[in-house]
C-alpha cells in the first residue's frame, strides 16, 4: 500500500536563497509606495478643508519622522523601479526597452523636480 508523503509548505522558502529575499523586498516595497499614495490623498483632503488644515498637513510633512519615512519610501520606490525596469526585456523583448524606461524615468524626474523647485 503506497502512500506518497506530502511535505508541508512553510514560509521557510523565503530564506532558502537570496533570490527569494530579493523578490520579497520587491513585493514589500509596494506597501511603502501605497502608503505614500494614501498620504497624498489625505493631503488633498486637508487642502479642500481650508488653509488651516493645509498648514497643519505641511507641518506634519516637515517633522523628522515624516522625513525619515519619505527617505525610506524613496529608497523602496527606487528599488521597486530598478528591479522592474531590469525585468522589462523579458516581458517585451524589444531593443533598448529597459534603457527607454530609465530615460523616461529621468525625463519625468527632471520635470517634476523643476516644477517643485
Amino acid at each position: 500500500m503506497s502512500k506518497p508523503y506530502v511535505r508541508p509548505i512553510t514560509s521557510e522558502w523565503i530564506f532558502r536563497h537570496p533570490r527569494y529575499l530579493r523578490y520579497m523586498a520587491r513585493e514589500f516595497s509596494c506597501l511603502f509606495i501605497g502608503g505614500w499614495t494614501v498620504l497624498m490623498v489625505w493631503g488633498l483632503k486637508q487642502l479642500s478643508e481650508g488653509p488651516l488644515a493645509w498648514q497643519a498637513f505641511l507641518e506634519l510633512l516637515r517633522s523628522p519622522a515624516s522625513i525619515a519615512l519619505h527617505l525610506l519610501t524613496l529608497a523602496f520606490a527606487t528599488y521597486h523601479s530598478i528591479t522592474w525596469f531590469n525585468l522589462t526585456p523579458k516581458a517585451l523583448p524589444l531593443p533598448f526597452i529597459a534603457a527607454a524606461h530609465y530615460a523616461l524615468w529621468g525625463v519625468v524626474s527632471v520635470i517634476v523636480l523643476r516644477a517643485a523647485f
Binding site: 536563497h17 533570490r19 527569494y20 523578490y23 525585468l87 523579458k90 516581458a91 517585451l92 523583448p93
Partner: peptide, 24 residues
C-alpha cells in the same frame, strides 16, 4: 514574476519571460 524558474533551468530556457509575454 519571482523569476526563480529561469534561474534554475539547466537548459537556459527562460520560462519567466514566456509567462510575462503570454500575460501581455
Amino acid at each position: 514574476f519571482v523569476g526563480a524558474c529561469s534561474e534554475v533551468c539547466p537548459e537556459h530556457v527562460d520560462p519567466a519571460a514566456a509567462i510575462q509575454q503570454v500575460k501581455i
